[in-house]
Computed example of a mutant assay.
Amino acid sequence: MIMGEILRRLRYEHGFTQEELSMELNISQQSISKWEQDISQPSFGTIVKLSTLYKISIDEFKIR
């Protein structure tokens, strides 16, 4: 699974729209869209925020 797929799956599983997640993380919706399309990737600090928000280990973001 690639990073964009992981991020999209987790967002759907937790019931967030891209807009809602962007407000929660205080970033642009376009950034989330780019992550999910594998155009760019979130910073490590954002991965930490996402793991806290989703109550998962950072290891869940590993690309397999």
Rank of each mutant, 00 (worst) to 15 (best):
I32G: 04
E19Y: 11
Y54K: 04
D59Q: 10
I32Q: 08
G4V: 04
Y12S: 13
E60F: 09
E20T: 04
Q29K: 13
R64H: 12
Q29H: 06
L7F: 13
F61C: 08
K34W: 00
E36L: 03
Q37E: 13
I2H: 10
P42F: 01
M3K: 08
S31L: 08
T46N: 13
I47N: 00
Q18C: 09
S40C: 04
Y12D: 15
L25Q: 00
M3N: 04
S31D: 07
R9I: 11
I56G: 01
S33D: 07
L10G: 05
Q18W: 02
S40L: 05
E60A: 10
I27P: 09
E24I: 06
D38Y: 01
Y54R: 03
Q29V: 11
D38W: 02
K49V: 06
E20Y: 07
K62V: 06
S28P: 02
L25P: 02
I47L: 15
S33L: 02
S28N: 10
E13K: 13
H14W: 04
E13P: 03
E13I: 04
P42C: 03
R8V: 03
R9Y: 10
G15A: 09
S22C: 13
R11S: 05
Y54G: 00
I47S: 02
S57W: 12
E36I: 04
W35D: 04
E13R: 11
I58Y: 01
S51I: 01
I27R: 06
R9Q: 15
I6H: 12
K62P: 02
T17L: 05
R11E: 09
I63W: 05
N26S: 15
S57P: 05
G45E: 09
R11V: 03
S22Q: 10
I6E: 10
T46H: 02
G45H: 11
E36A: 02
M1Q: 13
L53P: 03
L50R: 05
K34T: 04
S22P: 12
S43N: 12
Y54V: 02
Y54F: 10
L50M: 03
E13C: 08
S33R: 07
S51V: 01
I39M: 07
S40K: 07
K34S: 04
S31V: 04
L10Y: 15
S33I: 00
Q41Y: 15
E19V: 11
K55H: 12
F16Q: 07
E24Q: 15
S33K: 09
H14P: 03
E24S: 14
L53Q: 06
S57K: 13
F44G: 01
I27M: 10
G45Q: 08
S57R: 10
P42T: 08
E19W: 11
G4R: 11
I39W: 00
S31E: 11
L21G: 01
T17E: 02
